Simulated scan of single mutants.
Amino acid sequence: MMNNLFSIFDPTTNLFNLSFNWMSTILGLLFIPYSYWFIPNRHYIFWNFILNKLHNEFKTLLGLNSFNGSTFIFISLFSFIFFNNFLGLFPYIFTSTSHLTLSLSISLPLWLSFMLYGWINNSQHMFAHMIPQGTPNILMPFMVLIETISNIIRPGTLAVRLTANMIAGHLLMTLLSNTGSNFPSYLLFILIFIQILLLILESAVAVIQSYVIAILSTLYSSEVN
């Protein structure tokens, strides 16, 4: 019996009405004990190198007016999304970032906190940001409307971008794997090779999407200072 194609994204594994699939979101915590070794291994040194690069880049984007330690919010956001995206590529591990429930839970509080901080502390700057410099007087009401709409849809675009990219790759891999039973044996090697290429592509997408979400969140927060 043919199931719904999107049923592969449903968290159906449960015990005592508790969904076990959503527990995959905390699997990234298993990588934290690497930092407590007396002599760090190569994986931790490589990960620490990546985090230092991200810290310097986020610090540059936030500017001189940013608070000390504010980059750690976006580094933690990058790490959380990266681990969830990457671990979702392994068999029998639920990809929680392919659901709007999780991605909206991340983007909406971040955006809301930026907006509240900006309008409470820098209301004049926020009003000035809604009208680009050099805008004719007759176009100012339209620019305010356009900027307001673009600000409101920002958490939705962040969430949909992450969810759509994760769903698209997983659906494509699922569709190809379901056709394997109908393939002759001499074509299975081609199918396996295509699946390996798709897996490499999805690994790159997992890194890129976590980086894009962190960078865009950093840019949104830099606008309220």
Rank of each mutant, 00 (worst) to 15 (best):
H43R: 09
L201D: 09
F38N: 10
F6T: 13
I45D: 05
L89N: 15
F90M: 11
F142S: 08
L197T: 10
Y34T: 10
I93M: 01
T97C: 09
N225I: 14
G63Q: 02
G169S: 12
N84Y: 01
F142I: 15
L62K: 06
K53C: 11
T218K: 06
F9Q: 02
N165I: 00
T174H: 13
W37I: 10
I45F: 03
L191G: 13
N182S: 12
L197M: 11
I215T: 15
F38C: 05
T97A: 06
W37D: 11
A168S: 11
T71C: 08
V144C: 03
G134S: 05
N14K: 14
T71S: 13
L108N: 04
N68K: 09
L188K: 14
P33E: 03
L108K: 02
G180R: 12
H125N: 03
L158D: 13
I149D: 00
R154G: 04
I192G: 04
Y36H: 06
L187G: 10
R154E: 11
T13Y: 01
L162A: 08
A164I: 02
F86L: 15
W37K: 15
E147N: 14
T148Q: 02
T71Y: 01
W119K: 10
T101Y: 09
G28D: 00
F94H: 12
L87T: 13
H125P: 00
M173P: 00
T25V: 14
P132I: 08
L5K: 08
P40Q: 13
S181A: 13
Q133Y: 08
Q195Y: 00
L175T: 15
S222A: 15
L172S: 08
N151Q: 07
N84F: 01
S181G: 14
A128H: 02
S24P: 06
I200C: 10
L54D: 05
N151D: 05
L77T: 11
N137S: 12
N3M: 08
S181V: 15
L61M: 15
L102M: 10
N85K: 02
L175W: 07
N56W: 02
S66R: 09
I196K: 04
S150G: 04
I215A: 05
T135I: 06
S217R: 03
L29T: 07
I192S: 07
T174Y: 10
P132V: 11
S210I: 09
G63E: 01
L172D: 07
E57G: 13
L172E: 14
I26C: 11
I192Q: 11
I138K: 05
M126C: 00
S103W: 03
W47L: 12
V144A: 01
F83D: 01
I26E: 01
F193V: 14
F72D: 09
M2S: 13
L89I: 15
W22Q: 06
F20L: 15
T12C: 01
I50G: 07
K59E: 08
Y117F: 14
F58T: 02
P141S: 03
L175I: 15
F67G: 07
H99W: 07
L158C: 09
F142Y: 04
W111P: 00
L201S: 12
Q133S: 12
F82D: 06
I167Y: 02
G134Y: 04
F31I: 13
F20Q: 09
H129L: 00
N225G: 10
N121A: 03
F82S: 12
G118W: 00
M173Q: 10
P184V: 04
Q124Y: 00
L158F: 14
W37F: 14
S210C: 07
N4C: 08
